[in-house]
Nucleic acid binder design. Structure first.
Lengths: 251, 251
DNA sequence: ATTCATATTACCAAAACTTACTCATGAATT
DNA sequence: AATTCATGAGTAAGTTTTGGTAATATGAAT
């Protein structure tokens, strides 16, 4: 195998796995650890990868708060994201709401052919290596805390698109208060996205149940799927059958 | 098989495979390694291919290395950016065009209090640590090669803002063709930004003079300042006095 | 704070690949 | 018949890549 080919393959592999050990790479590419080190070094020099003790990962020159949030309940978010990814098909035009749970889905859909509209800057960044993903950003004021674009510009841009699926995030849900979020600036964006989408998915890990934030952006009768990481409390199952929602969780 | 035919076939083959070893080519075309070498050399001379150890690959990796481009003429870009930064004052509302030279200005204005509107994703990312910079992104299709948002959405968003300064990039300028850029998708964005801005700066290092690209986004009588890294050819000085432009370069 | 397993770095020699030659052959051209 | 050209084959010298080993550094556990 050509060295250059191997190096691009390594980059690809790491991007797919997010981070891998050197031993993994040795096994995968059947060359010595020494060689892997040298290859990795080249990619590091090109700023394509980052070394971590014992392996490599993709570089994330991100500011702290978002990074931290990403790690919280990471396992649960991955489970949810993988379940949700099953519903995404080639050719879909999806709205991908800003959030850490929704962001995890990229990993599972990156090889599909999709049009993704998002107000989150990191999603655009993360999707860059995958040319099958056509990315539309919404404009607007950049909000540092959520690393997303908010405000009327963003909402107006979204109102012009038609989605067949909307993947929504939430900071809390309850049966009477519906789906809530903590940034009023984002509410209009979410409303517009929901109104223009055929099917609406809400991704929420178990910690989000029976909690609520300042603004409500939707109610149970407006959405189609709730995807979570474990069996929810019984009253949600009941509510779901009343409102004809599908609640999806690992069996 | 004719030599010329074989050579075009080799080019074709490599482009399809992205990169191949010489041995592969020997097998594929049933000629000696010697001949393959000679053929490949011709293609390399024509810049159609590039040699890598053990084989050949296409000259540019498919993903355009924006990070790499950033380094080209880095010194010049810094000089220009620093000159331009002098004109930016607290409270300004500026349009910052996508480009490597324009991007360099961030470093010199990061501690001012500004509102920056940009279609480039990296600028948003780079500006994140500096809360005095309020960032507005333009929406639209994300273009990987320039790492910016383009298209009508972006242009429409910009048309809604009023700037007092626009910092423009260009891939080439000449007196009769004006200021040009290579992506027609960006032209409308640039036009809108210029029309809504009180003062217009064009940043162009010396290599951009007397060169032009596919589309013209503006002419000398429409702009106010040209900022460059060394004294430009005399006919530009003359043109500047005719059109009342200011040409700024280090004394 | 010390110890131990593992990761990293530095260096070397072998292997693989290039480059730059020379030379012989056969086909096409003059 | 002489000349030109593309090709294959081979050789020697130089480079790049690679895998192994020894020395050093690091992280985790005691």
């Amino acid at each position: 195998m050509l060295k250059t080919k191997r190096i691009t393959a390594i980059l690809d592999y790491v991007q797919r796995k997010h981070s891998v050990s050197l031993d993994d790479l040795v096994k995968e590419f059947n060359v010595s650890k020494n060689t892997i080190r040298r290859d990795v070094q080249e990619l590091v020099d090109q700023k394509k990868l980052q070394k971590v003790y014992g392996g490599v990962s993709i570089p994330r020159p991100l500011t702290v708060p978002y990074q931290d949030r990403k790690i919280q309940n990471f396992k649960e978010k991955e489970i949810i994201a993988e379940l949700a990814a099953d519903y995404i098909k080639d050719g879909d035009i999806i709205f991908l709401d800003s959030g850490t749970t929704t962001g995890a889905i990229l990993e599972f859909i990156k090889n599909k052919s999709l049009t993704i509209v998002t107000n989150n800057m990191d999603f655009t960044l993360d999707a860059t290596p995958y040319p099958q993903l056509q990315i539309y950003g919404t404009g607007g004021v950049f909000e540092r805390s959520t690393r997303s674009y908010v405000g009327m510009d963003s909402a107006e841009t979204i109102a012009k698109y038609n989605f067949n699926k909307a993947i929504m995030a939430t900071t809390g849900l309850s049966i009477d208060k519906g789906f809530t979020n903590s940034s009023p600036l984002e509410t209009q964006i979410k409303r517009n996205a929901m109104e223009k989408s055929e099917t609406i998915f809400v991704l929420a890990d178990h910690s989000k149940f029976d909690r609520y934030s300042i603004t409500t952006y939707g109610y149970f009768d407006e959405i189609d799927y709730i995807i979570t990481d474990r069996e929810p409390p019984k009253h949600y199952i009941d509510a779901a059958s009343e409102y004809k929602n599908h609640i999806i969780y690992p069996k």
